[in-house]
Simulated scan of single mutants.
Amino acid sequence: QSGISLRDMEFQSWSPLGIPDSEVSLPLGLLTEGAILAGPGGELDVESPSPSAMAAKMAAGGDGWSLDLRNIDSSARSWYTATFAHTDIRLGLDAESEPLPVEPRVVGTLGGIPVDVDGRVMIGNWQIVFAGLYAAGEAACSGLHGAGAAAGNRLLDALAGGSAAGTHASSYAGASKFSGSERLLSQLSEDESTLTSMLSTTSGDDTPRAGEIRSSLNNIMTNHMGLKRSEASLNEAVEKLSDLAGRAAGLRLDYRDSLLMNQNLVENIRIQSMVSIARTAVTAALLRQESRGTHNREDFTDQDDETFLKHSMVGADGASDWLPLRKSNHGSWILAPDA
């Protein structure tokens, strides 16, 4: 929304251990402690595949997958006390007595706000940065994962990226008075206008609801932006997301007495942002006419290094471009050629 294009949004991180009809995904570490993942064809070998590879195998095997936690080694069980309690109290599932239903699901994108090795937000290319603005962790696209994340590396990325960004930001703040405030003030004015619109009208019977928008978004992305994609399915997603964005813009507040701790307001803003981000991801997936990492096109099954060994860049307005690869100051690839 502030004019910064997002990078590599077509690449996603999958979990094979999502609990159906909830937003809960179980820790992958359970699979190394004796938990058994089984489906219609029997037990799934989980020794070597990445989370995305396991999710793909599950999707190919059909519905009816379950995770049996009753065989977890007693010495490791204490590490997952909170997991057992969470599934019982929040979901009403007793992992102590029966297998839990699971399904593959997207848990995040590997793309995001483009940053360099110091966590500085980039605008368009490697030479221009948004002065004073930094990003790290889930919000940023550092390039550490390439086109597919290994289990546990998202936390590593957050720790390393946060440290690098914090170190550079402290040096920058001590040496400069400029912080790119004009862009920030412009965005603040736009956000205030959005809030005023939400506050101006209360919800009615025909007003879109955040839960309905979220459910529709989940269905669109699962059906058209899943483990297998094609030009036809992605174009259908573009049309449906365009309609959904219009509905999301009509969200209003049920509770308007105060903006303090207003979860209704927070949820509405989050949903609108999710729809916008989903649209950039689908656009990026259409642009990348090859299969690489977690991006698998049924109509372009080969990896095409000559044409697509580079970063996709997509803005909130749909404008797109490509960013050439480069190596960091330490000689490592920002996006590895063999990712």
Rank of each mutant, 00 (worst) to 15 (best):
D118I: 07
S189Y: 10
D94N: 09
W322F: 01
Q187F: 15
G204D: 02
A135P: 08
R154H: 07
A210N: 02
M261Q: 14
I36R: 13
T294N: 10
E290R: 08
I220G: 02
L184Q: 06
E43T: 14
S78T: 09
S25P: 02
S193E: 14
G29M: 03
N71S: 15
Y172D: 01
A319V: 08
A339E: 11
R326E: 00
E212D: 11
L244G: 03
D205N: 15
R77A: 13
D157W: 08
S179I: 14
A56N: 04
L44W: 05
M122D: 01
D299M: 00
H224S: 09
M274G: 10
L91Y: 07
A147Y: 01
G42Y: 09
A76N: 12
T201C: 09
P101C: 06
A232Y: 10
A85K: 11
S320L: 13
M9Y: 08
L184G: 06
A281L: 05
L6C: 04
S200H: 13
L241M: 02
P51A: 06
T283L: 09
E267W: 09
E212W: 06
S197H: 11
R154V: 13
N218E: 09
A76D: 04
A76F: 11
G152H: 10
P337I: 03
N329H: 10
E236V: 12
K177L: 07
S176A: 13
E10S: 09
R256Y: 05
A56H: 13
S291C: 02
R105W: 01
V266K: 09
L159Y: 11
A336E: 04
E96W: 10
A158R: 00
T194Y: 12
D254W: 14
V266Y: 06
S193H: 14
S52Y: 14
G180C: 00
S215A: 14
L251W: 04
S97E: 12
T167C: 10
A249D: 14
S2D: 15
G315A: 06
G64Y: 00
L31I: 03
F308I: 04
S186C: 13
I72C: 11
L325K: 06
G148C: 14
L217D: 06
S15C: 01
L69N: 05
D321N: 06
L155Q: 03
L325M: 11
V24T: 15
D8F: 04
G41I: 00
